[in-house]
Design a protein around this nucleic acid. Structure first.
Lengths: 216, 216
DNA sequence: AAATATTTTTAGTTTAGACTAAAAATGAAA
DNA sequence: TTTCATTTTTAGTCTAAACTAAAAATATTT
């Protein structure tokens, strides 16, 4: 495995999990490489049986590929916890450095780091850390978009893209914070959240897909 | 810069510092690559003005190359401190993982890590950590081979090659430990060290080059 | 000084990972 | 259903970093 192959596998996982077929187009956007480069990498990974490929349709991870993706995500998220808790990074800063470190981490290192951090379950934006064997602890949470009007909930996990995290920082939406959904405008309009103390936050429709909550 | 170029620069520094010309042969041994590959890399680094090259003689670091080498060593040694102090690595285990991590560390990361470790001066085998600007704090220490019979001294730094460290672990030679040199055999024979409590340790002639001490 | 050995360089090949440009396949619109 | 647009693939090129084999330069021995 090389860092590039690892990133490619991870991109497939991020776009399609271990079930769905991912198109070349989607990978072109995700990785900022050309369509021809995607086809190239597909043939390489196919040879190693990390993906299956349906010509002109897309690719899907094999069991083997999915395991590698989960172990990478494990490394990534454990590093995120370290950067955030020990080195004082903000949650929108951790991503870039974790992306570098995940490719330079032996299994020994990750296990010792995990011990040092006292075996965390979540990373700084609420993503669950896969187990050593590649399985994923299951956590019940609901996309904010599916919450019904009037329900109360707690923020559990948010999408970890740089600019989205900056937006949430600005909106003061934080993990663990509790709100009640007091308004949803029709036609994909904004959602209005209210805290106990009466503070209101208005979020766009698309943001509500990127936030997972626990109903309380 | 790529990891390979970085390793090459570091190898030149380790073999010749920032003064001496290093032969292709020496780099072949150090990096376990062929002579042709060394010539290849030389021409690449020459183009970037990181080295100077005298055909059929060898290469030497430029100012620019030397700075890069020192910053790499800084990264390497700061990681070694982390692995040793925080993750419980033995001093013979730190090298491999530090070698990977040093190429995946942003400047920001290293500075925060340095803070977290409370700005250490030495790494786990006594190597001094270069400053952020590439300068090296000067520490007075003497190779054990230059110590005169009957003198007392403290162990300050040891060579950081895996098998040498394992040898010292076996011999119970540790940083900070104090000895008196009670015997040197002629014709490159062994040295006999004695502690306050009368325990004696016998070391080979070559080992005495790889150990730096402070006379007390 | 000539012969031999060692080291360095040159020339040509390989692989991973990117690219461009053009061809083939698929999907959407007239 | 034919045309147009999009997506995917193929074919060929490029760079970094390695390799082998052979040629050139330097060092060592006889």
């Amino acid at each position: 495995m090389t860092p590039n192959k690892e990133d490619f596998i991870k991109a497939i996982y991020e776009l399609g999990g271990d079930q769905n077929v991912v198109t070349n187009k989607a990978l072109v956007n995700q990785l900022s490489i050309t369509a021809a480069s995607v086809t190239d990498m597909n043939t390489r990974l196919l040879k190693e049986e990390l993906i299956t490929h349906i010509p002109y349709q897309g690719v899907k991870l094999t069991e083997k590929g999915s395991l590698i993706a989960n172990q990478l995500i494990r490394k990534h998220r454990i590093w995120e916890v370290f950067l955030s808790e020990k080195l004082g990074y903000d949650w929108n800063e951790v991503h870039a450095d974790a992306d570098l470190l995940e490719h330079a981490s032996s299994d020994l290192l990750i296990e010792r780091l995990n011990q040092f951090l006292e075996e965390p379950t979540f990373d700084p934006h609420g993503g669950v850390i896969p187990n050593k064997d590649g399985t994923i602890p299951d956590i019940e949470s609901t996309p904010l978009i599916d919450v019904s009007l009037g329900s109360s909930f707690k923020i559990k996990e948010v999408d970890d893209q740089q600019e989205f995290l900056e937006y949430l920082l600005f909106k003061e939406v934080q993990l663990g914070k509790e709100y009640t959904l007091v308004d949803i405008e029709p036609y994909d309009g904004p959602l209005t959240l209210e805290t106990d103390s009466g503070d209101r936050t208005i979020l766009g429709h698309k943001a509500a897909f990127k936030i997972l909550v626990e109903i309380i």
